[in-house]
């Protein structure tokens, strides 16, 4: 599999098919034997900003650290939680995607949910 072609930028869905975001970044580590090993997939504005330019990435990190809703946890999904990869990526468990639901949850509760008729 070609990580950049076949994984990066694909949509990530939870086991029920609910979209969580797209693969904004891939977290990999270099093993002692010199092999690159994928650890996690990342959904985050920082990762997207870094792909535009490192400077924009640093701005985004500083900004998002201040405004991110408290409920938002780590937005990295361990590679072991990845189920199938095809047109989109399906996670094995709902729990694995919890950290990426922060914004959607917070906005649904505090903004959209307060508008009459939501």
């Amino acid at each position: 599999m070609d990580l950049i072609r076949d994984v990066l930028d694909l949509p990530i869905l939870d086991p029920d098919g609910v979209p969580l975001g797209r693969v904004d970044g891939i977290v990999a580590e270099l093993d002692p034997d010199g092999r690159l090993r994928v650890r996690a997939l990342e959904i985050s504005g920082e990762a997207r900003a870094r792909r535009l330019h490192p400077v924009i990435g640093r701005w985004a990190e500083r900004l998002l650290r201040r405004v991110r809703p408290v409920t938002a946890g780590p937005s990295r999904i361990p590679w072991s939680e990845i189920g199938t990869i095809g047109k989109s990526i399906r996670l094995r468990s709902r729990l694995a995607g919890e950290g990426t639901r922060g914004w959607e949850r917070w906005l649904a509760r505090h903004v959209v949910g307060r508008i009459p008729g939501a």
Binding site: V18, P19, R22, E104, R105, V112, G113, A118
Partner: peptide, 21 residues
């Protein structure tokens, strides 16, 4: 679509909060 948010006019607004906003 580009950011991978849930979208669709037929979804209740609560379930697609980012798209609605």
């Amino acid at each position: 679509q580009g950011l991978g948010w849930r979208w669709g006019e037929d979804l209740p607004p609560r379930e697609a909060a980012r798209f609605v906003l």
